[in-house]
Computed example of a mutant assay.
Amino acid sequence: MSDAFACVKQYVFRTCKDEQICVHAGDVRHCEIMYHPTYERLLNKAIMLDGEPKPTRLWESMVAMGRLHDMRGDDTWRMIVLDCVMSSLQGWSLRISRDLYVDLSDVRSDMFEAGLATWTETVRGIAPRLVPAIMRKTAIRAAYQGATVQTRETAFERPEDFLDEEDHPEMPGPKASSLIHGANIRDPAVVEQLRGERNGALFHKNNCMDAVSRFHEEIRAGRRPDITARAAKAPMLARSNLFGPSHYYYISDFLPPFIGMPAAAEALGIPESAAYHMVRRGTFPCPPTRMGRSLRVPVRPLMHYMEIPDVIVHPDDVENGAAHASGLARRIRDPRRV
């Protein structure tokens, strides 16, 4: 029977395969850095020669990726961090098992449970670059304690068993009620239409409808299948008989996936210096990722923190809302027009 270390490694390698791993943005398509290693090379670079994780920028980015994916309900990067930390404990686990006459699988289970608990406990108030070293020390201490009192915890067989889903709930769905102020509309189709028109009016107000129109052209031409497939599966779509039902998309799909720290600080209403101070202390609301020498903040978690609904809209509704707002604006400028 495989021990916990082996199960996690198999899970990560099966998930990552031989694909390029982006530790900066999580997706090579959105990253400004050209070099992206395979997971095996990333693992070798993270562990260092002496087997101890150092507080480097690489570890800082890896932990930030883990925190961001936890918010989305995706355990991939959490498991990557845990595998890298556990890989640095191979020698320690063998030593404890040999010196204290404890089954190796029990030692490694204790280590993994302690590392996973530490990951959860350090989600707030601990700088990302310090988390791996804390996980490592806690795992070693827990293994010694478990061996001393002769506890025998059964080793897990599936990586899914390591994960406590209740500790990492998925983001809540779109809040349509927040977009319809003072109305008591019960027809889902009407709510859906109003949602798109309101966002179209907002796009027009911010003078970005040209970019939105180009985005809609790509969707209608089928050049954005990854975006439309994600939205079209949502159960809250009310108008399946609408022409082009596969053209739905999330508002965040149109926005850039990352913004700089100055823009994020402005959106949060805090000074830029305070934002960098919060990052160093590990208290910034959305863990930023590092691209080269600069920090970037992911937009979707930032929207979630600011309670901005990432709603699903249809291009027709958005364009109708923008056209209505445009016509209203012209009438206000020229009172003679009816």
Rank of each mutant, 00 (worst) to 15 (best):
A4F: 12
C16L: 00
D18M: 00
I21P: 01
D27K: 03
P37E: 08
L42F: 15
I47H: 03
E52I: 15
P55R: 11
M65E: 12
M71H: 02
R72L: 12
G73E: 05
G73T: 06
D74N: 15
V81C: 14
V85N: 07
S88Y: 03
G91Y: 02
S97F: 03
D99Q: 15
S105D: 15
D106T: 15
D106L: 11
M111S: 06
A114M: 05
A114G: 04
A117V: 01
T118K: 05
I126Y: 01
A127V: 01
V149T: 11
R158T: 12
E160S: 12
H168D: 12
H168Y: 13
P169E: 08
P172S: 05
A176D: 04
A183G: 06
A183C: 04
N184F: 05
A189G: 11
E192Y: 07
L194E: 07
G196R: 08
N199H: 14
A211Q: 13
V212S: 07
H216L: 07
I219Q: 06
A221F: 01
I227C: 00
R230F: 00
R239S: 09
F243H: 08
S246W: 07
F254V: 02
P256C: 03
P257N: 12
A267V: 07
L268H: 02
P271V: 12
S273Y: 01
Y276H: 11
G282A: 03
C286G: 00
R290V: 13
R293K: 14
R293H: 13
V299K: 00
M306F: 04
M306C: 09
V311K: 02
V311Q: 03
I312A: 09
H314L: 06
A325D: 11
A329N: 11
A329P: 01
R331G: 09
R337E: 15
